[in-house]
């Protein structure tokens, strides 16, 4: 079991539904976020390229945030999901500094928080909240260990990339390009 997310940048319109949905699903306080949208524009009028992307914790295979955590609050499950246990976290911020994607933030209650791949929903057989609301259906979620899963198939058949692969973290959120 290796959970991964695949996001089709050719369909994403940058609407931010995934950001609000995460807020309401996961009680992310106003003023904070677990996911966000970036817009990249290249070229000069009228030959321009635009890429919109929904970004979040990459649930890295080689997760520096887990390694640097002094208490074990940051940990990785067998299915690849990287989580923080709030009442083991001392708020030292080491994991925030260690993440090349700036995917973590300090919750106003003091502990560090980030995307959980909506692990509580997976338990119930539901897709992550962001995936389930996306109006362009450009987000896919599933098991990379299963060669027949939608995500495996998409990665097999389509051109894709990950963010900052040079950081060596082996990110598990893939972008179809």
């Amino acid at each position: 079991m290796r959970y991964a997310m695949v996001i089709d940048t050719l369909k994403c319109v940058g609407c931010s539904d995934c950001v609000v949905a995460c807020q309401t699903e996961n009680n992310v306080p106003i003023g904070y976020c677990r996911d966000w949208i970036t817009e990249t524009v290249n070229g000069a009028y009228p030959s321009i390229e635009l890429e919109l992307k929904s970004e979040r914790c990459n649930h890295c295979d080689n997760a520096p945030c887990v390694r640097c955590c002094p208490t074990g609050a940051s940990h990785q499950l067998d299915n690849g999901i990287v989580l923080v246990t709030a009442d083991e976290c001392i708020g030292c911020g080491a994991c925030i500094e260690s993440c090349p994607y700036d995917a973590r933030y300090q919750h106003p209650d003091g502990y560090v928080d980030k995307c959980t791949f909506c692990h509580h929903r997976l338990e119930k057989g539901q897709l992550p909240a962001c995936v389930s609301v996306c109006p362009t259906k450009c987000m896919y979620f599933g098991d990379l260990d299963d060669p027949n899963s939608e995500v495996s198939q998409l990665l097999k058949n389509r051109k894709h990339k990950t963010l900052a692969p040079e950081a060596g973290t082996k990110p598990q959120v893939y972008y179809l390009i």
């Binding site: 079991m1 499950l77 709030a86 509580h120 997976l122 338990e123 119930k124 057989g125 098991d143």
Partner: peptide
């Protein structure tokens, strides 16, 4: 039942959320 296969882990917080 879990559409993504078995998942043994369930931490306390999540349990609360689910219930």
């Amino acid at each position: 039942l879990n559409m993504f296969g078995a998942n043994s882990y369930l931490d306390e917080l999540v349990k609360q959320n689910v219930t």
